[in-house]
Amino acid sequence: MRKPGQIVAGLCFLAIGIGFTVGAVRLQIGVPTEPQPGFFPFWDGVILIALSAVFLFQAWGGRAGESHAFGRLGGPAVVVLALVLYVATMETVGYLITTALLSAAVLKVLETKPRVLVLMSLILAVASYLIFDRLLGVTLPPGLLAVFG
């Protein structure tokens, strides 16, 4: 059976192969006696393009091998979104607040009771801050809490 996901995966590999091959040509390939920076990525890219084409051919015919069905995508999507927001705001808002909110998002997806969710998020943010920042010397961004020193 033809699986659209496998075709998309094959197209991604093909695009990456083409991208690196074109980039390698721009870097200059050189000759075997005098290889240039583009030599190795060029040949890797060419082989990847060839293999991706074979894979796409197989995927089109429904012979691209196994793949695992997607389950409920809501959970992973919420956590990835929370992580993206976390990366964007961590420096300005600070580690403690953003980590507590990130933990709350993960626990919410895992259907944790509200009281446990709040308690666990706060404990985790504070405990990880104390362990990594104070004990192990990793400088975590204080953000808005910098005013408290």
Partner: peptide, 18 residues
Amino acid sequence: YQYLAVVVVVVCVIGAYS
């Protein structure tokens, strides 16, 4: 499992940051 999962996420974040 939810406790384990959230700890892993936070440790991954700190690990990458550090």
